[in-house]
Simulated scan of single mutants.
Amino acid sequence: MKSIFRNILALISGLVVGGIVNMGLIMISGFIIPPPEGADITTMEGLQESIHLFQPRHFLMPFLAHSLGTLVGALITAYVADASKTKWALAVGGVFLIGGITNLIALPSPLWFNIVDLVGAYIPMAYLGALLANKIQNKDL
């Protein structure tokens, strides 16, 4: 029974911290790569109306936010989980993937970004997070 609670706590911790990393990067992205002139990025409606103004460079920070949020969340989950660490890390990737699909529906973006984001940012990063957690834990021994 203790193992189940630890694994659920690991999943929740990974999702929360991964979400914080994701949102943190999204929040600072406008300072790193300024939005196009006339784009209102403060609301979903503003983004929907101005997405056509975005150039490929404007999609770099969202991709990094999705990738790094998933990576960090999966790493934490796999590190804390008691058993089936890779499966729990991939669960984080699955939850973030569902969020990515939801975002794609709410905010239509270029097809190339949708493919790169959905294929590269979630499940591969979750698996990498599990591998990194395993490496870190093996060094501790």
Rank of each mutant, 00 (worst) to 15 (best):
L68W: 03
F59D: 06
M61E: 08
F59V: 10
A91I: 11
A81K: 02
V119E: 00
G100D: 01
Q137W: 00
I123K: 01
V116F: 12
A126P: 10
Q137A: 15
N103C: 07
H58P: 04
W88M: 12
Y127R: 08
L131S: 06
P124Q: 05
L111E: 13
L118T: 03
H66M: 12
G99L: 06
N134W: 11
A91W: 05
S109W: 00
D140K: 12
S67Y: 11
L132V: 15
I98C: 07
L132M: 15
V72L: 08
V80C: 08
K139L: 15
L97A: 03
L118Q: 08
F96Q: 10
I123A: 04
L132I: 15
V116G: 10
A81R: 02
T77D: 03
K87T: 14
I105N: 02
L64G: 04
Y127F: 15
V119P: 08
N103G: 14
I105P: 07
L128D: 06
L141F: 13
K135C: 13
K87M: 13
V95N: 03
G94T: 05
P110R: 00
V72C: 07
P124F: 05
T77A: 10
A74E: 03
G120E: 01
F96N: 11
G93I: 01
L132A: 14
L60N: 04
T102E: 05
W112P: 12
L75F: 15
S67T: 13
V95D: 02
V72H: 01
G93Q: 01
A126F: 04
K135P: 14
P62Y: 00
P108F: 11
T77K: 02
A121C: 06
L104Q: 13
G73E: 07
L128P: 07
W88G: 07
L132F: 14
A83N: 13
L60M: 14
Y127T: 10
L90E: 11
F113T: 06
F63H: 09
L141E: 14
V92D: 11
P124S: 06
A133H: 08
D117P: 01
A81C: 11
G94M: 04
L75V: 11
S84P: 01
L131E: 10
A121V: 03
A83K: 09
P108H: 10
N114K: 11
I98N: 00
L131D: 02
W112Y: 13
H66Q: 12
Y127Q: 09
K139F: 15
T77N: 04
P110T: 09
P108Y: 10
T77F: 05
